[in-house]
Every structure is written in C-alpha cells, then in structure tokens.
Amino acid sequence: MSALQASGRGGAALETAGAWLLALVWILPLGYALWAAIHPSAYSAHFVLDAPLTVENFVRAWNAAPFARYFLNTFILVTMILAAQLVLCTLAAYAFARFSFAGRDLAFILVLLQLMIMPDVLIVENYRTMSALGIVDTIPAIGLPYMASAFGIFLLRQTFKSVPRELDEAARVEGAGPLAVLLKVYVPLAKPVYIAYGLVSVSYHWNNFLWPLIVTNSVNTRPLTVGLQIFASTDQGIDWSVITAATLMTSAPLLLAFLLFQRQFVQSFMRAGIR
C-alpha cells in the first residue's frame, strides 16, 4: 500500500514537472518577444542577464509605419462588427427562439450552414461581390461578411430558449409589444452571454488577417494585422527587435485586457463553448 502511494506521489511529481515544462514552452514565444523588444538589437539573439534595457525599438516601430492609423482602423472595424452582430443576432435569435413561422426550421439550418462554410473560405466570390458593390478597400467591406454570425445566432437562441415563458407572458399581459419584451426581458437576462460573445468576437476580428489582407490596399483601411505583416515583410528586413516590438504593440490591447480580466476571458470562452 505504501509502495503504491509512493509511486503515486512520484507519478504526480513527474506529471507536475511535465505540465510545467509544457507551460514554459507555451509561454516561450511571448517571453522571447518581450526580451527582444526591450533590449537593443545586438541582444536580440544573444541572451545575457546584464543586457541593457531600452524602449527605442517601440519608438522606431511606431515611427516606421502608420500604426496609429492601423489601430484606429482595427478599433472601428471590431466596433462596427460587434455592434452589427449584437443587433442582427439578437433579432434573429429571438425569432428562432420564440416565434413560430413558416420555414423556420429550414431557415435555421441555412443559418447553421455558416458554421462550416465560413466567410474565410469564400474569399474569391466575396471579393467579386465587394467589387460589384464598389466598396473594395473600405472598412465596411472587411466587416460585412461577418456581421450576420451563425455562431452568435445559435448562442443567443439557446439562451433565449432557456428564459422562462412566464416572464415573457407577464410582460405581454402588461401590454409590451414584441420588441419591448425582447429588450425588457430577454436581453437583460442574456447579459453574461453577450459579454462572452463580445469577447470572442472582438478577439476573433482583432486577429483576423486573410480577408482584410485581400480586401484592403491602403493605409486608411488596413487593420493592424495587415499593417503589421506589410511592416514585417517589407519595411524592416530582419530587424527582430523592431519586429517583435511592433508585434507586441499590435497584440498589447487584447493581451492586457486578457491579463487584467483573465477569469472573465476564460469563463466567457467557456460559456461560448458550452452551449
């Protein structure tokens, strides 16, 4: 018995070591980026404890490309997408959850189709559509394909369905119309889900790259990811210190938000996954 316990303890120690090793490997890229960004270029591949600290890499990166504009573009983009998603998905989810109308089940299947056939793979035809609409190289063109989100509709529909009918009926009896019931009963009760969905959506679109790369071609529309890529691949050669500084800069808002609100982030992603 005691031998078994001892081997159990040894196994646990080994497991802990394994978990820690994996965690260190997982944090290594970020750790390296931090190292290279706050030390002079000479130390970017040369790791000594007495390397001098500097903020010059950030200054150089900031001045080398219109990052302020890229930040603004990304900010406009994620705000626009999230606002549209919240409105459109709420209305559609409400329809699916609480109204019976002809063709509802078929419509729901057509919505779910987007979970598999995401806008990310329809780049050729969507580019053609944007050209036809004459809005290539505009921020709305980056956001439009993502605004009606099947994921959001599905998530909110599940939430709305779990709202007790009695609350709904009580509000109706008091004379509230369909939209008033939605705003007074359903939306407040779904607040945690909205936060969860919002976080997932913002991080997705902050990080999205391929479609914005295709549909933008000027400084005034490019989001951070595309700006960073153009900066890293053409402007800089291979000055790792400046590239890592730029990389950290572009990820900083999300990363800081995540570090500050870690629990909420993790719980939000969980909530989005459970349903």
Binding site: V87, L88, C89, L91, A92, Y94, A95, F96, F99, S100, F101, R104, A107, L110, V111, L113, Q114, I117, P119, L122, E125, N126, T129, L144, P145, M147, A148, A150, I153, P178
Partner: peptide, 21 residues
C-alpha cells in the same frame, strides 16, 4: 414578426454565404 426579425440577418447571410457558395 418572425420573418421581420430574421430579415436583416438573412439578407447578409444570403449575400455573403449562400450566394457566394
């Protein structure tokens, strides 16, 4: 009501998912 609520989302979905597919 059902269809009106669904309309905005379905227009976008049709334009950027079903039509391109």
């Amino acid at each position: 009501h059902g269809w009106l609520l669904l309309l905005p989302a379905s227009v976008l979905l049709a334009t950027f998912t079903h039509f391109p597919a």
